[in-house]
């Protein structure tokens, strides 16, 4: 499976630069979701704040251990947050998989989306090829944004997993 194959551009969020991620980081994200299957896989996205660029993804345990729910392991979140800050970066979003549904935020995702500045990335494993979409969720309103896949080595930090 080519993990980047599903990362087609979606509708552009108004004025947002969209999400820019290199192929290796994208592959890490999708591989983690496949590894977590049949449970939902999840993790955090790290990059320069406000840039739309993701330089690393930090797969985390899904403490909900469910095929229909995810909760990022809180201590892993704290570690990711500190590590990002130490590198002059920030946690800028979260990814999780939908194992049997399309890559669109569910009512649960929207209700629990904590941060209007974050990128909410969905990895759908519903079909043979994983598909990846990114959204902004502001005041309960969901807007898809473009996902641009950058060549590997285009500024990813050495800390990329």
């Amino acid at each position: 499976m080519d993990p980047s194959s599903g990362a087609a551009p979606g509708g552009s969020a108004g004025g947002s630069p969209g999400l820019r991620i290199d192929g290796a980081t994208l592959a890490t994200m999708v591989a983690h979701c496949l590894g977590a299957y049949p449970e939902e896989g999840c993790g955090l996205l790290v990059g320069p704040e406000g840039s739309g660029r993701v330089v690393r993804c930090v797969p985390t345990d899904n403490v909900a251990h469910s095929a229909a729910l995810y909760t990022v392991e809180p201590r892993a979140h704290l570690r990711a947050d500190r590590a990002a800050e130490a590198d002059g970066l920030a946690v800028v979003g979260v990814f999780h998989s939908h194992t049997h549904t399309d890559p669109y935020p569910s009512p649960t995702d929207v209700a629990q989306a904590p941060d209007p500045g974050w990128h909410y990335v969905l990895v759908s494993l519903r079909h043979e090829l994983a598909s990846v979409r990114s959204y902004r969720i502001v005041d309960g309103r969901v807007e898809e944004e473009d996902v641009t896949v950058l060549p590997d080595g285009s500024g990813g930090s050495p800390g990329s997993i």
Partner: peptide, 12 residues
Amino acid sequence: VSILPAVAGGAR
């Protein structure tokens, strides 16, 4: 003391 948002959701 550190405070972070809980990050959760799901397909349901």
